[in-house]
Simulated scan of single mutants.
Amino acid sequence: MSLLTINNINKAFGGVKAINNVSFELPRGQLLALLGPNGAGKSTCFNMLNGQLKPDSGSIKLEGVELVGRHPRQIWNEGVGRTFQISATFGSLTVLENLQMVLLSRDKKLFRLWTPAASYYKEEALVLLDQVGMADQADRACSVLAYGDVKRVELAMALAHDPKLLLMDEPTAGMAPKERNQLVMLVKKMVIDRNLSVLFTEHSMDVVFEHADRMIVFARGELIADGGAEDIRNDPKVREVYFGSGKSFEAA
Rank of each mutant, 00 (worst) to 15 (best):
F209S: 13
G64L: 08
L113F: 15
M1N: 07
L96N: 08
D231C: 02
G81S: 09
V65N: 11
D235Y: 13
V217H: 05
R140I: 03
P116F: 07
A118K: 13
V65Y: 10
D56Y: 04
S197G: 15
M185T: 14
T201A: 13
I75M: 08
G69R: 06
M48G: 08
F243W: 09
H161N: 04
L103V: 07
K178E: 13
F46L: 15
S248M: 05
K17V: 05
G14E: 09
D56V: 03
K11R: 14
L129V: 11
N38C: 11
R233H: 08
G244E: 12
G148Y: 11
K17S: 14
N181W: 00
R106K: 15
I19D: 13
E154V: 01
K237N: 13
W114G: 09
N21R: 04
A252H: 12
G228N: 15
T201Q: 04
V102I: 13
Q74M: 09
L126F: 03
G148N: 06
L167E: 03
G228W: 07
G174I: 03
L93R: 13
L145N: 08
T94M: 06
G227C: 06
F90V: 12
A18L: 05
A33I: 04
G39M: 08
K122H: 12
D162R: 00
A212R: 10
V191E: 12
V65C: 04
L31W: 01
N181C: 01
G58Y: 03
M205D: 13
F46K: 14
E179T: 03
R112Q: 15
N10P: 00
F200D: 14
I192D: 11
G81T: 04
G15A: 04
A135W: 00
A229D: 08
R152C: 02
L67S: 07
S2V: 05
S245N: 07
P37M: 02
K54H: 10
V191D: 12
I75Q: 02
T5G: 05
E222N: 10
N50A: 05
G133I: 06
N77C: 04
Q182M: 06
A117F: 12
M175E: 02
N10E: 11
E170P: 00
L35C: 09
V16L: 15
N10D: 10
F90P: 06
L4H: 10
A135I: 10
S57V: 07
L96V: 10
T44G: 10
